[in-house]
Design a protein around this nucleic acid. Structure first.
Lengths: 258, 258
DNA sequence: CAGTGGTCTAGACCACGGG
DNA sequence: CCGTGGTCTAGACCACTGC
């Protein structure tokens, strides 16, 4: 580590002359983490490269070791850095392993340039059936908001979406629902989703389903039931969806238990 | 919070008279987290119940606030506790939202009492094909270990599993492979998986696949491709699997990005 | 206003890994 | 051996909540 004239770690740190704003409302450790993340993203810090020690980092940034360490910890949690006791901290090899996201189909398609579109087939208040009631944790027959939507990408139907919301969400009109994803609208309404339980299966399509999705009868569908909850653990949305298996697959990441 | 004669929070804390072993190799914050988790699991701390403040907790346990806070933080990360500034920390409502695990099918079935069994159909060293090579990040034609297994539950076939390993794993014999899950064996061999990228789709079965799985030809299968990587981001296993959709669904949790 | 969680500091000791 | 990350402490100030 003391190879002359200067160690690789010291050189790596020289490439990080970013400044911190101590009067910003954004926490110091978060500022540090953001800058480190950007450096890794831009390959300023190459995969496998050793960062300087936490002590060095804290001294150079003028923060306590605890704060520097917390920033590093964040990136370790994101899978961008790896720490080895007695060795040091290095940028992870291979493609970064970003953690799982609670994805919105609309946003996913949008990000992939698939030109998503939505047709609102139903928007009503109905008494909750047994399945939706159980998933939402409310008594059967309670009034819930029910949505049925047909999602297309590049002009072709991809999915039929059924959603049940236990609370009436204001400002949830057809125009908005056809122009954006439901999760984005819920967030705008002040409902922050924290996670979801999800079940994926597959079966053949009924005649009605096949016609709606533009598939031959008996073709293969992916089925999804998803219950999304907020940060208090309350289920705020339950959906049961069908995807054309010929045009869609689920792609996501798993994290091992620590 | 100062209702006489004693606050609910104080009562809740009285139910946690656990002792800490300061000479144990297991960290204090982890001991605290384990005990808190058990208390929540056993409903000693009821959902929605307020814990005492972090200061109280640290004083009662005789640790610093930082240590107590770290334990609480762990459980917040696990989705068991929720914190609100100015209010306090409370046990999450509804069913606990345990985070996602990198599951082993064998262990999942075992835990569900489904009496899993494995038949080893193939175990060989072969040159990597284009798909496996790309997934493993190695040149095409490199020698890899290839496994083909048939997984059953309660005597009925459930899945056909193909696995590719870039390194020859010693002690990977038929007896072990038929008596346990692959991930458990890899862990025993010192390979610790950290996460995985996964794609789930569906299609109909070919005649050969249908026969192997005991399904009629043309029945629906769930398809899974999974690349598992270790803590350095290197892919250490690639698998492509088929599941009988009539007998299996994927059940897992998603966490929203923070 | 008092109490809460959120952040930050400047120290300390330990366990591990490499030279 | 020394440097690393892993843990822990005792204090401090702030922003937010509810009364």
């Amino acid at each position: 580590m003391h190879s002359s004239p200067r160690s690789a770690a010291a050189q790596a740190q020289d490439a990080l002359p970013f400044t911190l704003d101590r009067h910003s409302p954004v926490p110091l450790h978060h500022q540090v983490a953001r800058h480190l993340e950007a450096a890794i993203e831009n390959r300023v810090l190459a995969p496998g490269e050793l960062l300087g020690s936490e002590i060095d980092l804290s001294v150079r940034l003028g923060v306590s070791r605890t704060t520097a360490r917390r920033a590093v910890q964040t990136l370790v949690g994101l899978g961008l850095l790896v720490r080895h006791r007695g060795v040091g901290t290095q940028v992870v090899h291979g493609q970064a392993a970003r953690p799982l996201e609670l994805s919105s189909l609309y946003d996913d398609l949008d990000a992939a340039g698939q030109a998503p579109a939505t047709r609102l087939l139903r928007h009503e208040q109905i008494p909750a059936g047994p399945e939706a009631a159980a998933a939402l944790g409310i008594p059967e027959g309670t009034e819930v908001t029910h949505l049925e939507r047909l999602r297309s990408a590049r002009g072709q139907p991809v999915a039929r979406l059924h959603n049940y919301l236990p609370t009436a969400v204001p400002d949830l009109d057809a125009a908005l629902l056809e122009a954006s994803g439901l999760y984005r609208l819920l967030r705008s309404a002040g409902i922050t989703l924290c996670g979801a339980r999800q079940t994926i299966g597959a079966r053949t399509a009924t005649g009605e389903e096949a016609e709606l999705l533009g598939e031959p009868e008996g073709s293969v569908l992916l089925t999804v039931q998803r219950a999304a909850y907020d940060d208090t653990g309350r289920v705020v949305e339950y959906g049961t969806h069908l995807y054309r298996a010929s045009r869609y697959t689920f792609d996501f990441r798993l994290l091992a238990r620590p």
